[in-house]
Design a binder for these strands. Structure first.
Length: 872
RNA sequence: GGAGAAUUAGCUCAGCUGGUUCAGAGCACCUGCCUUACAAGCAGGGGGUCACUGGUUCGAACCCAGUAUUCUCCACCA
């Protein structure tokens, strides 16, 4: 036989992916079948495939492939996200390398560069998804900045504005000095940072006295507009009504009083810097304090700081501390840990900054979105995330949706020369709007504000089907609401919640039925995989090494929904080995010669057992999928194929050396083989398609591919047949164990006698003889002496051995132990049964079960005791 | 500071309404096998006071309370 000994994935992968594409199996159009829709969480255009994508998209592909095989109209819509801040940062960096400063470019020129960049690198990740076998409908590929999707975004902005959800105002926002843009609260990552707490002396005016204020940010003292103490604080009663001088610049500021100050913290004195701290801002509002903003948009000090103008805030911090030290106004410096916010995208320390931004009012919008999840219209899987979803929805704050960037959908607001503004889709409409308001339209212009990326992704399940602009179109009506959403819990609020909000606002329907939240891929040490740690394997390389199917299996083997996945390449190895196992089962069957004969009774019995076992597995797999337990579904498939199909079924039907197999049996084997391949297909698409087309299974039409073959349907199975066969398996194992323990080669056939009282094992005689390698097989009614015995169910089995292999004492001991154990067991069962409360309270079937156990144990004890007596 | 979750074999996890005196799986491990499908394999085997302490119950890995450790999310304390 000249078939390779191991499965070679590469050829199969390229061949079949191209074939599937060519035949259009991924493409979906509405028809009268039940739709099954998934919209892919769009990766950033700047993205490169990492393990998280690999996991996420493998799960989606498994779900979509299974649905497709179940005869549903499966549609998986791929696409990419423009990721405004991340992409803009990349383009800026690229331009910088070319010696181009963003500031020197016009908006239009910059966007030209950005689009060029997108065209060049934007498709990488989608190409990589093909490698993992993703059966997306590529004809439907979308980009969040496609013209139609952008228009949907603008329309939505205008709609929400008119509905009163969107407003413009000056607020304290999270400012990213590196991206030079505002951010939403969700885009700020808080991290604990080791800092210094500086204790600074503020001299009281017209006095030599001073008070001490603790701060982690000495560079902001130049923006101080007050000192605040708690009115209850005994220590500072004498300061009421006084003023102090800001060190270094000697500006005079008042001492105010507010309960907000905690007396126990620091020195009990607080410097109030309304421009650079949210709390201080609110305090300033309350006490009518001026706001002095000493920072530029890029985080450097401006002229209002009076000193160190142009210095970066962090350099200024050190310099201010030094200057203060030089003039003796530092009391002390302590180490201090505190939470500092960082930009999710640029990792720059966030600066609270007062600025004019656009906001979306969330409280009302959030209510129905919470209801959907509360009443089960949308299921979170696993549901442990509900608590935090609810908490977020109930405490949601207004969403800052404007960003001071160029890459994104421009906010449709128009300004005139007096800085009055209107919201309108086009310039013409804006002019009209100004005129309608009796305002001038002269000097009309837009600002450099774009919308938060998440505003456009919130529309994704609708906008990919053009449902925002044309809700009556056939696609949208057919595919929406979508079925399952597969995504990471990290973006539950960023994205999932907002999709639900938008979906409801437009359609009064949830955008999807189930949200499967995947875990985070971590390394063996439990660390999150990240580029900076360098602990993330490249999925493409893994696929090269272990084959795509191997890596897919590896990812799924240990990734229950919502639990983090401790990834290790050994899982991929296991996946590869499994692929190889199936490959070799194929080689085995492929090599069989046939003779035109009907199947023997023994073969029929074996087939009947496997059929039942198969149906049992299908039922289990169904159940697992119904609960999104993909790794369990995979493991059931794995064991069905490896253990039941290969180790038992194929070994049983396997013809002896140079003996042909009956044609009827071979047909049965091939039938089963194709059925198990179907079960494996969603997990291992390439290998299964490769084998499906082998001539062994007959010639196939061009369209007859496993990807569209009918998935095995659940059907009835006889559990008794399976249990009966388990006894057979046990007998065979025990015989093998006898050889192992006694050091007898597997090649040596042994005689076996069975005394069976409750089941008819005769139809399995051939099976036992074959796999147990039995020389003489007999059914007996009495004890057999000079043999090792074991109990399989209630059947006592005897393996006759040479005298030197039998240790009567050891046998006696073994049997006695077993009896002792059973007796103990019996006592506990009897105790239970004689307990009136148990008999009264427990369910009848449980009591019955105990009675069965009792009878069982008694029977076994009797058999063993006779054996013991038989030993003499 | 608030909330949630986890803790079961060396590792990763099941254990889906509490009901066996064997608490399961996969991997790893040990022993023996190059048996003509597969050594990426075959056969067999060992391994767990279900984190700890109490409680509820006829009965607890499972329910309750507390303790410990770990993780995640949320939160403006200088």
């Amino acid at each position: 036989m000249n078939i390779a000994k191991t499965y070679n994935p590469k050829e199969a992968e390229d061949k079949w992916y191209a074939y599937w594409l060519e035949k259009g199996f991924f493409h979906s159009t509405p028809d009268d079948r039940e739709p099954y829709t998934i919209v892919m969480p769009p990766p950033n255009v700047t993205g490169v495939l990492h393990m998280g994508h690999m996991l996420n998209n493998t799960i989606q592909d498994v779900l979509i492939r299974r649905a497709r095989m179940q005869g549903k109209n499966a549609c998986w819509v791929p696409g990419t996200d423009h990721a405004s801040i991340a992409t803009e940062a990349k383009v800026v960096a690229m331009l910088k390398e070319q010696g181009i400063d963003k500031k020197s470019l016009t908006r239009e020129d910059f966007l030209k560069h950005a689009w060029e960049w997108k065209e060049k690198y934007g498709g990488i990740i989608l190409k990589q998804l093909e490698k993992l076998g993703a059966s997306c409908d590529w004809q439907r590929t979308k980009f969040t900045m496609d013209a139609d999707l952008s228009e949907a975004v603008i329309d939505t902005f205008i709609k929400f504005y008119r509905e009163g959800y969107i407003y413009r105002g000056v607020r304290m926002v999270n400012w990213d000095p590196q991206g030079k843009t505002a951010l939403s609260d969700e885009e700020v990552i808080r991290k604990e940072v080791n800092q210094k707490l500086y204790y600074i002396r503020y001299t009281i005016k017209d006095s030599n006295d001073y008070i001490i204020i603790a701060t982690t940010r000495p560079e902001t003292i130049m923006a101080d507009t007050a000192i605040c103490i708690n009115p209850q604080d005994e220590r500072y009663q004498h300061l009421k009504g006084k003023t102090v001088l800001v060190p270094l610049i000697n500006r005079e500021i008042p001492i105010i009083q507010d309960e907000y100050v905690e007396m126990e913290f620091g020195t009990g004195c607080l410097k109030v810097t309304p421009a650079h701290d949210l709390n201080d801002y609110e305090l300033g509002q309350k006490h009518n304090l001026p706001v002095i903003d000493i920072l530029n948009d890029d985080g450097t000090l401006n002229e209002k700081a009076e000193i160190l103008i142009g210095e970066d805030r962090f350099i200024a911090r050190k310099k201010v501390a030094k200057l203060l030290e030089e003039v003796g106004q530092i009391e002390k410096i302590e180490d201090y840990k505190s939470q500092v916010g960082f930009s999710e995208r640029t990792d720059a320390a966030i600066e609270p900054k007062l600025s004019m931004q656009w906001f979306c009012k969330m409280d009302e919008l959030a209510k129905p979105a919470l209801e959907y999840v509360e009443n089960g219209s949308i299921k979170l899987i696993p549901d442990k995330f509900f608590a935090s979803y609810k908490h977020w929805m109930e405490n949601v704050k207004d969403w800052c949706i404007s960003r001071q960037l160029w890459w994104g959908q421009r906010i449709p607001a128009w300004y005139n020369e007096k800085n009055e503004w209107v919201v309108a889709k086009t310039e013409e409409e804006a002019i009209q709007a100004f005129e309608d308001d009796g305002k001038t339209a002269s000097g009309i212009r837009q600002e450099d504000d774009v919308l938060d990326t998440w505003f456009s992704s919130a529309l994704w399940p609708m906008s990919v089907f053009d449902g925002v602009r044309h809700p009556d179109n056939a696609d949208f009506k057919y595919y929406y609401p979508t079925s399952d959403l597969v995504t990471a819990p990290e973006i539950l609020f960023f994205w999932v919640a907002r999709m639900i909000i938008m979906g409801h606002d437009y359609t009064q329907k949830p955008p999807f039925k189930n949200v499967y939240l995947t875990g985070i891929v971590r390394d063996k040490l439990g660390r999150k995989m990240s580029k900076s740690l360098g602990n993330s394997p490249d999925p493409i390389e893994l696929m090269e090494q272990y084959g795509t199917d191997g890596v897919r299996v590896g990812m799924l083997l240990s990734s229950p929904a919502g639990n983090d996945l401790m990834f290790d390449v050994s899982y991929c190895e296991q996946g590869r080995n499994f692929a190889n196992k199936i490959w070799n089962a194929f080689r085995l069957v492929k090599g069989w010669e046939t003779v035109d004969k009907p199947a023997t009774e023994a073969q029929k019995n074996t087939a009947s057992w496997f059929e039942n076992r198969f149906n049992q597995a299908v039922a289990e797999i169904d159940e697992h999928f119904a609960h999104y337990r993909l790794s369990d579904a995979l493991m059931t498939t794995y064991k069905l194929i490896w253990d039941d199909f290969c180790a038992w079924y194929l070994e049983l039907v396997k013809p002896a050396y140079q003996t042909p197999i009956e044609s009827e049996t071979l047909e049965t084997v091939k039938g089963f083989f194709q059925k198990v391949l179907k079960l494996a297909h969603p997990f291992m698409p390439f290998l299964t398609e490769e084998l499906w087309h082998d001539a062994m299974f007959g010639s196939r039409e061009a369209e007859d591919c496993i990807i569209v073959a009918r998935y095995p349907e659940k059907s009835a199975f006889d559990e008794d047949v399976i249990k009966e066969f388990e006894i057979v398996q046990q007998i065979i194992s025990e015989v093998r164990n006898v050889r192992n323990v006694k050091g007898i080669s597997p090649k040596v056939a042994l005689p076996l006698a069975i005394n069976t009282i409750d089941i008819d094992l005769s139809k399995y005689q051939d099976s036992i003889v074959k796999l147990g390698n039995i020389s003489e097989f007999s059914f007996v009614q009495e004890k057999v002496t000079g043999a090792l015995s074991f109990l399989a169910g209630k059947s006592e089995c005897y393996v006759k051995l040479e005298a030197e292999n039998i240790d009567v004492e050891a046998e006696r001991e073994r049997i006695s132990k077993e009896i002792a154990y059973l007796k103990g067991f019996l006592v506990s069962v009897e105790k239970k049964l004689s307990n009136e409360r148990f008999v009264q309270n427990a369910k009848p079937e449980i009591v019955q079960n105990e009675q069965n156990k009792k009878a069982d144990a008694e029977a076994k004890i009797q058999i063993l005791e006779e054996s013991l007596a038989g030993l003499g």
